[in-house]
């Protein structure tokens, strides 16, 4: 009985009224040893991601890689076309007139890095994602308005349904609900 219930459970969600109580609650939850936790807020809160132990992202490296690929690709595209594939004498300039290739190289750096930033961010966030269990929570539509949420996922090794509910209730939460898968 208990087992089937737990397997259909995504986690336990607490609702808060302001960012300060959410961040404080997230810090206490992390300190209590829970690791599979996540906060939900209507705007970015720097302290929150730090509180749930998420401080590093590989995104800057992806963007750097995009910029390098764009820069090398942009320059050598021009080099190959103007020097190797179809050398053409334009006004007596050298075939490899590299200063004239810089503007396009620069634009290719920016273009590829920007694509890497946007699509890298979406990919790391696993978006687009049409379905997610947290949307089943009754008040969750307020997460894009003025409410703040904290979830302890059932995947957490320390997760115990009743214990997690009791713990979240002790954290000035307005309401604690179960989130089903």
């Amino acid at each position: 009985m208990v087992k089937t219930k737990a397997s259909r459970l995504y986690g336990v969600m607490a609702q808060f009224d302001n960012p300060s109580t959410l961040v404080a609650a997230a810090r206490e939850t992390y300190a209590a040893g829970y690791r599979k936790i996540n906060g939900y807020s209507p705007f970015p809160i720097e302290e929150l991601s730090e509180a749930i132990g998420f401080t590093r992202t590989g995104l800057p490296l992806i963007v750097l890689a995009g910029g390098i690929i764009g820069g090398l690709g942009g320059f050598f595209m021009q080099y190959w076309m103007e020097v190797i594939n179809y050398p053409l004498n334009v006004g007596g300039k050298p075939f490899n007139s590299w200063p004239a290739f810089i503007p396009i190289t620069f634009e290719c750096i920016v273009l590829c890095a920007a694509f890497a930033a946007v699509f890298g961010m979406l990919a790391l966030n696993k978006l687009p994602q049409p379905y997610h269990p947290v949307f089943n929570a009754p008040n969750f539509a307020l997460a894009t308005r003025d409410s703040f949420f904290l979830v302890i996922e059932s995947k957490d090794p320390k997760f115990d349904h009743d214990e997690a509910r009791r713990f979240l209730k002790s954290l000035e939460a307005r309401e604690v609900v179960d989130v089903e898968l």
Partner: peptide, 19 residues
């Protein structure tokens, strides 16, 4: 695209926006 205001998402989002 299924945006739900997750703290992990916001963190990467802010990084991407700043970059």
């Amino acid at each position: 695209m299924g945006w739900r205001g997750s703290a992990r998402h916001w963190h990467r989002y802010e990084t991407a926006y700043l970059l």
